[in-house]
Every structure is written in structure tokens, then in C-alpha cells.
């Protein structure tokens, strides 16, 4: 699995580094965080092998709580732990975390503004063979609409590790969206993640792609192809979707004729939605959204699905060429 992503040979400085899934990076980051901070408590809902919280569980069994297949209860229990000053990380698959427990997240975590970290894996269609029931394509929308919530979607393993460290030092509810498939390292060696700060790889006059998650790597590839054809395209990694880095977005908007958003999520309510909302009010201009077009996923290899749903670099290239 994860072939598509391993095949993407865009030429950033760090391409040679081993591709890992963001969920694997999470497992490692939790372990390191657990070592450093004794207040870290981890909860899972019977998916600790897949979400990689199992590593933390093995190292710190006294600070790991398996709540079983009960996501609503997991979120509630994490909330209670935060009320005693603990730093809970609650993990399961993205659709169960944000879908099943949405109202618990709203009523308890967000309304009371609790220091609960919701870190979900298996987002998007790159989940692959498990099919639509397990492919969250609505989770960004579900979390973004909540007051007090911060939403972060790391682009690679290294960024994921930084995200976990950063949110541990930040007080308040955070949703982190991770994936199952391996992603190449795309962020530069000296990159430093900060909440609400986008990373501008470069800006282009003809189009700027605002991407998030695994679509950052795909977008970099597309930009390279376009540049070789004389079309000047920039790429921005919008890893924090809420709060949106409006400064970076405005800069990208002002410097080009077209904004393209790219996400492994529904085009409704996610990154594309957030960007359109901002631009419509602040800098009206043409926008194209790359994402899942109001339909469910299905079974297949991640590679096949990325093609089927129009999430490849070719799809981005075609979209941008059509607009020139």
C-alpha cells in the first residue's frame, strides 16, 4: 500500500528520507512526549495497533486507557482527565472520532474549552481496501465548524512529530488528522511547525495551490510538471486549517490569477471550503477545488482510489491548464 505516494518523485531536499505514514510518526511522537511529560495520558477505542498508540501503551501501561469500542465514552473520559490537569490524547479512526463522538466533542470538549487532543488516523480515501465506511472525507468539516477547535493536518512524518509536540504545549481542543498510507517527506529540513502558520514552498503568478495532508506532496509534483511547461505555479502547505493562516493565503491570492485547493477530503466544508469563505469576503477571485466531489469512497488500493477520485498530480495539472 501507499504505492502512489512512494512513486511521487518530486525533487524536494528531503525526498531521499524514508517515507512513513503520519500515523507511524504519531506513535513515535507520543512515545517521546510520554517520556518527557508525565501528565500525558493516552486513550484509544480498540484500535491501538492501527492508530499506533499501542507503542505508548506498551511503554507506559499505567497511562494508557483502552476504552473499548465506545468512542463517545472515550471522548468523555478524556475530557474528565483533562479536568484533573492531565494532557489526554484520544485516538481512533477519523470517522469514528469525529463522526460518532461529534456531539461529545462539541458539548464537552469545545464548549468547556478543555485541553483534549483528538488525534485520529485513517482519514481520507487513502485508507484503501476497507472502503467507504472507514474513509473519513467529512472530518475536517465536522471539526472546523466547532468554536474553540484547532484543526491540523500534517503533510508528512516529520511535520507530524512537530505537530504533536506543538499541540502539547498549546492549551485547548485540537483535532489532528492523520493517515494510514506512507507519505514522502516533503517539508524542508529546517522547517519549523507553528499552529496557524502555513509553509510557503513558493508562489507562482499563474496559480497557487493551497494543499494539506498528503495532497501537499501531490501538489508539489503537479507544480513541477507545470513549471516545466512554462506555467508558474506555487505551493503552500496549509497544515493548520483552523485557524487559517490568512496572511499566507492573502499573499498567495494577491500574487496569482488562480487559487487551487487540494485535499483528500470532501470539497464541501474542508480546506477548499475554508479558503473560499475567506477569499469570497476578502479577496474575491477564481478558485478551483481538488477533493472528493460530494460522493463516498470505495474499496481499492490507495493508488487506484487517488486516480478514481481525481486526486493525482495529473488531475491538478489538467485543472490548472484548463484555467490558463
Amino acid at each position: 500500500m501507499g504505492e502512489m505516494i512512494q512513486n511521487t518523485e518530486h525533487r524536494t531536499q528531503s525526498t531521499e528520507k524514508k517515507a512513513i505514514a503520519t500515523r507511524d510518526a504519531y506513535g513515535e511522537a507520543l512515545l517521546e512526549l510520554g517520556e518527557k511529560r508525565k501528565d500525558v495520558v493516552v486513550l484509544d477505542a480498540d484500535l491501538s495497533g492501527s492508530t499506533k498508540t499501542g507503542k505508548f501503551a506498551a511503554a507506559f501501561p499505567e497511562r494508557f486507557y483502552n476504552i473499548g469500542v465506545s468512542e463517545q465514552d472515550m471522548v468523555g473520559t478524556a475530557s474528565g482527565l483533562s479536568l484533573t490537569g492531565k494532557l489526554p490524547f484520544a485516538s481512533t479512526f477519523a470517522i469514528f472520532e469525529t463522526g460518532r463522538a461529534w456531539e461529545q466533542i462539541r458539548q464537552t470538549v469545545c464548549y468547556s474549552n478543555l485541553n483534549v487532543k483528538l488525534v485520529a488516523t485513517h482519514s481520507g480515501i487513502s485508507v484503501g481496501e476497507d472502503g467507504a465506511s472507514h474513509q473519513a472525507i467529512e472530518d475536517i468539516a465536522l471539526m472546523r465548524v466547532l468554536p474553540n477547535m484547532t484543526v491540523v493536518v500534517p503533510a508528512d512524518g516529520a511535520e507530524t512529530k512537530q505537530v504533536i509536540e506543538a499541540i502539547a504545549d498549546y492549551y485547548g481542543p485540537v483535532y489532528v488528522r492523520l493517515g494510514r498510507a506512507k507519505v514522502p517527506n516533503v517539508m524542508p529540513e529546517d522547517y519549523k511547525f507553528a499552529i496557524a502558520r502555513a509553509h510557503i514552498f513558493n508562489t507562482g503568478k499563474d496559480a497557487n495551490i493551497i494543499a494539506t495532508g498528503i495532497m501537499v506532496s501531490v501538489s508539489l509534483e503537479a507544480a513541477e510538471i507545470l513549471r516545466s511547461e512554462g506555467i508558474d505555479v506555487g505551493v503552500i502547505n496549509m497544515s493548520t486549517i483552523k485557524p487559517l493562516d490568512s496572511g499566507a493565503l492573502l499573499k498567495a491570492a494577491q500574487s496569482s490569477r488562480l487559487i487551487v485547493t487540494a485535499e483528500e477530503h470532501s470539497i464541501i466544508g474542508g480546506l477548499g471550503g475554508a479558503v473560499c469563505e475567506f477569499l469570497a469576503e476578502n479577496h474575491p477571485m477564481p478558485v478551483k477545488r481538488i477533493g472528493i466531489r460530494d460522493t463516498f469512497g470505495c474499496s481499492g488500493t490507495p493508488d487506484e482510489l487517488m486516480k478514481l477520485y481525481g486526486l493525482t498530480s495529473d488531475d491538478i495539472v489538467k485543472t490548472i491548464i484548463q484555467c490558463q
Binding site: 463517545q72 468523555g76 473520559t77 478524556a78 475530557s79 474528565g80 482527565l81 479536568l83 484533573t84 461529545q104
Partner: peptide, 8 residues
């Protein structure tokens, strides 16, 4: 659920 988390 919240009470449980506090109790833990």
C-alpha cells in the same frame, strides 16, 4: 464518562 475521566 466525564466523571469517570475525573475519577481516573
Amino acid at each position: 464518562s466525564i466523571a469517570n475521566g475525573i475519577a481516573i
